[in-house]
């Protein structure tokens, strides 16, 4: 079966000018992200993975090169186009959850649901992440794992075509981390969303369909994983 390209990066570079020094955070990087895949981007800090994530997530633009989402060229997109992209196509899960402290779990999810025309039912999504009894709690009343589950629900409720997760287990303990990864895998499997997980935690790569390894602003290797492992069986 031919895989359909969801996002295309061709010879993308990103330079940051800091005073008199230009730092090349991303060097002529090319990457295809396919529909329905679970892609793990792996690399130590400073490898350029966050820069890549920012560009994929429409929060930053390449200094040169081509960035396309579907047929849409985003390489030179303006602020409003990027906002539209994030609003309609993207779900984002942060390392530190970034929930709105003044909204309950349910309301945090509703906040995102209100942005799109046909969101999934809020309660269904929250039930799916196992928070059916915690819906009316505020973030400060939830554990880290629960907060991250709310964050996943908030990202998933829009049924985005691309779900970006930045170190989603970075602030969580081992058991909770695994639970979160299972949820992400489940969303990928059952809703057919493309999921991109950025992490420095090598064992997590076992769950991805493909693994992108980065170092010093370059993609050094892209490997295809013939038999992805269920997150429950990953050890780190």
């Amino acid at each position: 079966m031919a895989k359909k390209v969801l996002m295309k990066l061709n010879q993308v570079t990103r330079n940051y000018v800091m005073g008199e020094v230009t730092v090349q955070a991303l060097r002529e990087t090319s990457l295809f992200i396919y529909e329905g895949e679970l892609l793990v981007i792996l690399g130590p800090s400073g490898s350029g993975k966050s820069t890549l994530l920012n560009i994929i997530g429409g929060m930053d633009l390449p200094s040169s090169g081509l960035l396309c989402f579907g047929e849409e060229d985003l390489s030179r997109a303006g602020d409003s186009k990027l906002t539209q992209f994030r609003r309609c196509e993207l779900g984002f899960v942060f390392q530190h959850y970034n929930l709105i402290p003044d909204l309950t779990a349910r309301e945090n999810v509703e906040l995102a649901a209100d942005l799109v025309d046909k969101p999934l039912p809020t309660e269904e999504v929250l039930t799916e992440v196992g928070l059916e009894t915690r819906m009316d709690h505020f973030p400060s009343q939830l554990s880290g794992g629960e907060q991250q589950r709310v964050a996943i629900a908030r990202a998933a409720v829009k049924s985005p075509r691309l779900l970006l997760c930045d170190e989603p287990t970075g602030a969580l303990d081992y058991q909770t981390g695994k639970l979160i990864l299972s949820l992400l895998a489940k969303i990928n499997r059952e809703r057919n969303s493309t999921v991109v997980i950025v992490t420095h935690n090598t064992p997590i790569s076992a769950m991805g369909h493909r693994v992108v390894r980065m170092s010093s602003g370059n993609i050094v290797e892209i490997t295809e994983n013939q038999s992805p492992v269920s997150p429950e069986r990953i050890e780190w």
């Binding site: 929060m59 906002t83 309609c88 970034n98 402290p101 906040l111 829009k158």
Partner: peptide, 14 residues
């Protein structure tokens, strides 16, 4: 700031 920026990431317009 952080809260508002994360809303922007979620797709809220300026």
């Amino acid at each position: 700031k952080r809260e508002l920026a994360s809303l922007r990431v979620l797709g809220f317009t300026n």
